[in-house]
């Protein structure tokens, strides 16, 4: 089986791996805290007030 055919079949794994790597980088950059802070306050823009 050629490299490209194998790559296409397993591309979802590469995508998932990229996702996990992104999440790990996000942990080190403190981005989870940014998301949490935004998500636990009522978002006035989202409800059409802000």
């Amino acid at each position: 089986m050629g490299f490209w055919k194998l790559s296409k079949r397993h591309a979802w794994m590469l995508g998932a791996l990229a996702g996990i790597v992104s999440l790990v980088i996000g942990v080190f950059q403190g981005q989870f805290a940014v998301v949490w802070k935004k998500a636990v306050m009522i978002c006035l823009e989202c409800i059409g007030i802000g």
Partner: peptide
């Protein structure tokens, strides 16, 4: 200007599966 790693991470995970 920061790369939004956490959001991209979740989107890649959900999208890939």
């Amino acid at each position: 200007l920061q790369i939004p790693f956490v959001a991209l991470g979740f989107l890649f995970l959900f999208g890939s599966f």
